[in-house]
């Protein structure tokens, strides 16, 4: 399959009052045409920063210090990480080639304009349509995301819609210029469970219909299992494991991935003795300004090897063509020592 986005050795630093903090350390992954790439990890692991850096939306405090982000278009490649984040080039990418939806549909829409106004704005900006044509396009998009009576709802203000409807409108806005990539940052976290499933199904359908790739950011492995084709697992600004979702539940190798999986509740275990307390990962995520030496997960790891994990920084090891893991258990360093 062809690549649409490649992130290579990405490093991002943020300026804080206590000095510079590195929040991404050598993040590399590809997104292929038409696939859903899941990005999973605990809060603060750098999922959202990864997403925002592709769009140049890190703000004045964040900076890409190393690495490349490349967008593959039909007529060539664009080096997104080299573009001026406030320049005109990246603005042609945002909303048109890559668009984004966010966690909270209520606060992600401006409360003082109708959703139609906000959807038509992006259509007119990138496609230069007339007001009338943009309105027709917006109504069509609202219909596509299954909002009933789109020709009336287009004039609704965000507070007049339910949470699920708002997120549908958000998806309509993000897909209105048929982007190559849709970045969805926790798109269902703020919604009811029943609505979550509807929204996820809708995203899948539209992705196939419009041939868009999706980068789905979530902390919810259930959502990943339902939606994603491949998954990258992040911990403290690094990718610890990446593999196809089909193999995630049986063949994952990194102790952190395995720990995440065992902290998932299992439905349908009826026998009394199978009902156990839900497992959780011991300890807390350390402060990002004090990343532990060696493997950042070693203080919480069950399979910690003293003298190795707290000394050597693990490198990604290729297990099979689609499966990489960054853990010393599987690397040459450990084998040499063993």
């Amino acid at each position: 399959m062809t690549r649409v986005l490649r992130v290579k050795d990405l490093e991002v630093c943020f300026a804080t009052t206590e000095g510079t903090v590195q929040v991404l350390d050598g993040v590399s992954f590809d997104i292929r045409k038409g696939e859903v790439l899941g990005v999973v990890g605990e809060s603060g692991c750098g999922k959202s920063v990864t997403a925002l850096s592709t769009l140049g939306l890190l703000g004045s405090k964040g900076k890409i210090t190393n690495g490349e982000i490349t967008l593959y278009q039909d007529d060539g490649e664009v080096e997104l990480s080299k573009l001026d984040p406030s320049g005109p080039m990246i603005r042609k990418i945002r909303g048109k080639e890559i668009s984004m939806i966010f966690q909270e549909p209520m606060t992600s829409f401006s409360p003082v304009y109708t959703i139609g106004n906000q959807i038509m704005e992006v259509i007119r900006h990138h496609q230069g349509l007339s007001k009338k044509a943009a309105r027709e396009a917006a109504v069509e998009m609202l219909g596509k995301v299954r909002i009933p009576h789109p020709e009336q709802r287009i004039d609704a203000y965000p507070h007049q819609l339910s949470g699920g409807m708002r997120q549908r409108a958000m998806i309509a806005m993000a897909l209105s210029c048929r982007p190559r990539i849709l970045i969805a940052d926790e798109p269902t976290t703020a919604l009811d469970v029943t609505i979550q499933a509807q929204i996820l199904r809708l995203m899948r359908q539209l992705k196939d219909e419009m041939d868009t790739s999706i980068m789905l950011i979530t902390h919810n492995l259930g959502v990943i299992g339902e939606m994603a084709d491949r998954v990258v697992v992040m911990y403290m600004g690094r990718i610890v494991e990446s593999l196809p979702v089909k193999r995630l539940f049986e063949e994952s190798l990194h102790p952190y991935t395995q720990a995440l999986l065992t902290s998932l509740p299992v439905l349908g275990s009826k026998k009394r003795n199978e009902r156990k307390r839900l497992a959780s990962i011991k300890g807390m995520v350390p402060d990002i300004s004090r990343v532990p030496p060696g493997c950042p997960f070693h203080p919480r790891c069950d399979r910690f090897m003293d003298g190795l994990c707290n000394v050597h920084k693990p490198r990604p090891v290729q297990i099979s063509p689609d499966h990489e893991v960054s853990c010393l258990l599987y690397s040459e360093v450990a084998k040499d020592a063993g």
């Binding site: 769009l55 939306l57 406030s86 990246i90 603005r91 042609k92 990418i93 945002r94 909303g95 048109k96 668009s99 984004m100 966010f102 909270e104 606060t107 992600s108 829409f109 401006s110 409360p111 704005e121 992006v122 900006h125 990138h126 806005m173």
Partner: peptide, 15 residues
Amino acid sequence: QKPYVTTAKSKGLKD
């Protein structure tokens, strides 16, 4: 700092 400003930026509009 509100999310709707980030949304507007992600649409490619001028600052």
